[in-house]
Write a protein that binds this DNA or RNA. Sequence first.
DNA 1: ATATGTAATGTTATAATATAACATTATATA
DNA 2: TATATAATGTTATATTATAACATTACATAT
Lengths: 163, 163
Amino acid sequence: MQAKVLREFSRGRHKHSACITDALKAAEHSCKERGIRFTAIRRRVLELVWASHEPVKAYDVLDILRNERSSAAPPTVYRALEFLLEEGLVHKIESLNAYVGCGEPGHLDSGQFLICSSCGEVAELDDPELVKLITEKAKQIGFSIKDQIVEILGCCSQCLSSK
Amino acid sequence: MQAKVLREFSRGRHKHSACITDALKAAEHSCKERGIRFTAIRRRVLELVWASHEPVKAYDVLDILRNERSSAAPPTVYRALEFLLEEGLVHKIESLNAYVGCGEPGHLDSGQFLICSSCGEVAELDDPELVKLITEKAKQIGFSIKDQIVEILGCCSQCLSSK
DNA sequence: ATATGTAATGTTATAATATAACATTATATA
DNA sequence: TATATAATGTTATATTATAACATTACATAT
Ligand SMILES: [Zn+2]
Ligand SMILES: [Zn+2]
Ligand SMILES: [Zn+2]
Ligand SMILES: [Zn+2]
């Protein structure tokens, strides 16, 4: 069984503007469905997080936002990120203190992240088999799982083949 | 197949001083074997990281160190932690920005951490089966693994049974 | 024992990441 | 339109981590 890829590596040139518009459209839809406000700030922060396939730093988002909105300050960004995290629209990469857009808003389990140390991009998998094994292993020692963080460091296929 | 527990939850009262002395002894031995200097600062920082079964913050270590050594400053602690991380004597819990002692210095793979949100303690597993599955899943999409981070959040058996 | 190079620590400053607390404004709906 | 709630503005500060350079300790060769 192969893992489902929620968020891909960019794999060379592709029409990334489509990644962004898809993500925004999905977010809009998801929020509308849940009766939740997808404000201009939240939308713009999500757009900036999706600027590339690399994880984005909160203060890099802030630097851009400051040029557009004089009132932008750290809480502006962190509140928007908090909202987006809660709604499952972005994920935090804990080992990088950085954020990535979620390729499939609203999927249940938290994904597994592949981090390429060569190109810096991050992909997201959703692998029920892996989640299940982790759950079982924990259960065997009497531990009850609420959430799990899986961040896999290495080199993506694109970077491997271009060596 | 059951995961090997490298670092246990404390499971109620136990002679924790033995955990500390064991860890220091193991570290001393490991460093001697590798011809590496286990200085007083490094030893003391490791001892403080092992103060309990909960992960420890760098600045909490620093606060204690300052009372013992007037020259203690952030680099004092971060350098010691960096050394201990490199030697496999401690691990960083990325999702908490905190550090735990390694229950079995020198084991090869990075472990899997169980974080109890009730008591705050952290256990470490070494499960080759899990490592293997993660490696295979990554391989299936052409990704080559260098390292992996697994942090499992939930509730430990001790806390579950005391509810 | 002394010189020499390297590793470790000291010291000061600052960068990077994140939150607290309270004021103001916008939005929904009664 | 009044009211409650959610969102944003604003200022300050907490937390986590590193840069850069000076000094000291240690191992080893002479
Ligand atoms: Zn794209
Ligand atoms: Zn890559
Ligand atoms: Zn103990
Ligand atoms: Zn517990």
